[in-house]
């Protein structure tokens, strides 16, 4: 009699409870990819409900990064197809000659670079190429250059002589011998572009790790913020702090990434474009800001600036936070980061 109706109601009830539980707890599908790009390992983890769609998005994001990497490649073989494709190479080759038409993305990177060159009064400079080459950090055998040669190379550094024509889409290095080096901006810019691609594919949760340049989208798949550690600059595997981040980027510049030692003195690859020597105020600087391209630029700039000036600069900008480990090992951070940073007191460098 009624019990049949009742049992149907019961089954529906159980199905609804189970269904609700499954829907709420259905973990988003993860798709992760890794690829070597821009001299580093780039990994992208993205989450969504449909694995194929996520996979498509991740692959498109990698394609976008490859495209930008090709534009900014500073050291392809002379005369090769890669050199032809690289805007940086073509601009460098035409230095002192004539303006070169570049892709929109290259133009965007250069405009950004020049803006921060001016804002930091030369602490960030994409025309540092001649000095970088002299130190040879890109190659196998880096060395301390002779002061004479360094002085000559330094004379060729200065973004005031980088002429950008937005209307025509051209870039021009005024003096022969000048060279662009987008090492401190291209990776971040490409990361940000890749993230936009993920978003266009409908992905709302993702993490891009471009050789330690981190960009997160949305919240972590666990719910809540992503936990991003800041590497201990003097201990492998150690972490000095954990940042709780949502939809932002964290980029670190440190003196431990590429360096060599001569007579107990460490020479690392982040050069002060104004002196031509490695910057010495900090051991590591992490910039937290939404745009990974800007974070990349600012991490280099703030590393080069003296710690106090770096903190002032970050403080003067909206939405830019800094975690700075001085050469004395002292960790300082922007006050606005207070709620989002978890300091590991026992793991100070």
């Amino acid at each position: 009699m009624n019990s049949r109706v009742l049992s149907i109601v019961a089954v529906v009830f159980v199905a609804v409870v189970l269904g609700a539980a499954l829907v709420r707890h259905r973990a988003p599908v993860e798709y992760a990819g890794e690829e070597f790009l821009m001299d580093t390992l780039v990994s992208i983890k993205a989450y969504g409900s449909d694995r194929e769609a996520v996979k498509k998005g991740v692959n498109a994001a990698f394609a976008e990064m490859r495209r930008i990497a090709a534009l900014a490649d500073g050291f392809p073989k002379q005369g090769s197809a890669a050199a032809e494709a690289s805007d940086v190479c073509r601009v460098n080759a035409a230095a002192g000659g004539e303006p070169v038409r570049v892709q929109d993305d290259t133009m965007a990177i250069l405009i950004l670079a020049k803006k921060y060159y001016e804002m930091t009064h030369g602490a960030f400079d994409v025309t540092v190429g001649p000095v970088m080459e002299l130190w040879g950090f890109g190659g196998k055998d880096p060395r301390v250059p002779e002061p004479e040669r360094l002085r000559a190379a330094l004379a060729l550094v200065g973004s005031q002589d980088l002429v950008l024509d937005r209307q025509r889409g051209t870039a021009f290095l005024r003096r022969a011998g000048m060279r662009l080096d987008l090492g401190a901006v291209a990776k971040g810019y490409a990361t940000e572009r890749a993230l936009r691609v993920l978003q266009r594919h409908g992905i709302g949760q993702a993490l891009i790790d471009a050789g330690g340049n981190i960009r997160v989208l949305g919240r972590s798949p666990r719910g809540g913020a992503w936990n991003i550690g800041i590497k201990n600059p003097r201990k492998d595997g150690g972490v000095v702090a954990v940042l709780k981040l949502e939809d932002t980027s964290a980029v670190t510049s440190g003196d431990y990434y590429r360096y060599f030692e001569v007579a107990g003195k460490r020479y690392h690859h982040i050069l002060d474009p104004r002196t031509g020597y490695p910057a010495s105020g900090s051991t590591a600087v992490t910039v937290v800001t939404k745009d990974a391209g800007i974070a990349d630029i600012l991490s280099t700039a703030c590393f080069v600036l003296p710690p106090d000036r770096a903190l002032d600069l970050a403080g003067s900008m909206v939405g830019v936070d800094l975690v700075l480990i001085g050469s004395d090992g002292r960790l300082r951070h922007s006050p606005s980061l207070q709620d989002r940073i978890d300091l590991k007191g026992d793991e100070r460098p």
Partner: peptide, 10 residues
């Protein structure tokens, strides 16, 4: 726990 990191910036 400490190991619950999603990534490390370096």
């Amino acid at each position: 726990g400490a190991a619950m990191l999603d990534a490390v910036t370096r």
